[in-house]
């Protein structure tokens, strides 16, 4: 095989289960630290964002209606697909890091996916309650997904930041639109390919590569997005984004890339309390 000319991948967006180019035709150039590898990636526009939100909104009821058991299996399936592409991810992450740390990150990302996969049919029991009200009522409080969640993933570590933000959003049945920073874009696209082959219904996960700084304000102002994970947003951008998000009172969460906890799931759920009389 010496001297064979390789076939290169075209890096595109991931919207509604498909891999379109940006409707704008824009791309951006990514170069590895040593400048050896260069890639042209799709640069998403606000119109792409709009399409992604629309797809997420369409996909949300079906994803939410899946059983926790089923969502757990699908998240586990994503982990399988990432594991299967582990060498690809390692290669891509190693463009910016050492091989050793890239290898560690991929392992952690896979394990993190499995950790969250296991939560899908358990977080309700831990977060929910039967409430002992002072009357003849059945009274239960249980977490439900919020709807469409916009995620600005932390750029570093590239894969772990992305998985750590996306998985907890998916656990409860939210649909996600994720903005991948340019530094993590290549891994993000490969991750999208893993998602696309993991039985995730189209539209549940949408991944846009491009400029978070350009798209995040449109995301924050979008009236059909219910919540934001702004973990990847620099602090100085927060006031503007949060102001834009106030128009429909989006819920906002923010974590360190390494945070792995139940709160990240809970933050994108709403507690619903249901009352019913007990009578004969």
């Amino acid at each position: 095989m010496e001297g064979r000319l390789g076939v290169r991948k075209t890096y595109k967006l991931f919207i509604d289960g498909r891999f379109p180019r940006s409707e704008s035709g824009r791309t951006f150039r990514y170069a590895s630290r040593d400048g050896v590898v260069t890639v042209q990636l799709s640069e998403a526009s606000r119109k792409d964002l709009r399409m992604a939100v629309r797809a997420a909104r369409r996909a949300y009821p079906g994803w939410r209606a899946r059983s926790g058991y089923n969502r757990g299996q699908i998240l586990y399936r994503i982990a399988e697909m990432v594991e299967d592409r582990a060498e690809t991810f390692i290669g891509q992450l190693a463009l910016q890091a050492t091989i050793g740390s890239a290898r560690r990150e991929v392992s952690e990302a896979i394990d993190l996916l499995i950790w969250y996969a296991g939560w899908c049919d358990k977080y309700q029991q831990v977060i929910g309650n039967m409430n002992p009200v002072a009357g003849p009522y059945f009274n239960i409080s249980t977490p439900e997904p919020m709807g469409v969640v916009g995620v600005v993933a932390p750029g570093q570590p590239a894969l772990l930041g992305l998985v750590g933000a996306l998985a907890p959003v998916m656990v409860s049945g939210n649909a996600a639109v994720l903005l991948a920073s340019s530094s993590q874009a290549i891994a993000a696209v490969t991750f999208a390919e893993a998602v696309a082959t993991a039985d995730v219904p189209p539209g549940v996960v949408n991944i846009l590569t491009g400029s978070s700084a350009e798209l995040a304000p449109w995301m924050a102002g979008h009236m059909d997005i219910n919540a934001l994970d702004l973990s990847g947003v620099p602090p100085e951008s927060s006031p503007t984004l949060e102001e834009a998000a106030s128009h429909n009172l989006k819920r906002i969460g923010r974590w360190d890339a390494s945070d792995r906890n139940l709160n990240r799931i809970a933050a994108f759920t709403e507690i619903k309390t249901v009352w019913h009389p007990k009578g004969r």
Binding site: N129, N131, P132, V133, A134, G135, Y137, N139, S141, I271, K272, T273, V274, W275, H276, P277
Partner: peptide, 14 residues
């Protein structure tokens, strides 16, 4: 959601 009731409140109920 109040089913077959309405405007019930209780400190134990979120």
């Amino acid at each position: 959601v109040w089913a077959n009731t309405y405007n019930q409140f209780d400190p134990a109920s979120p």
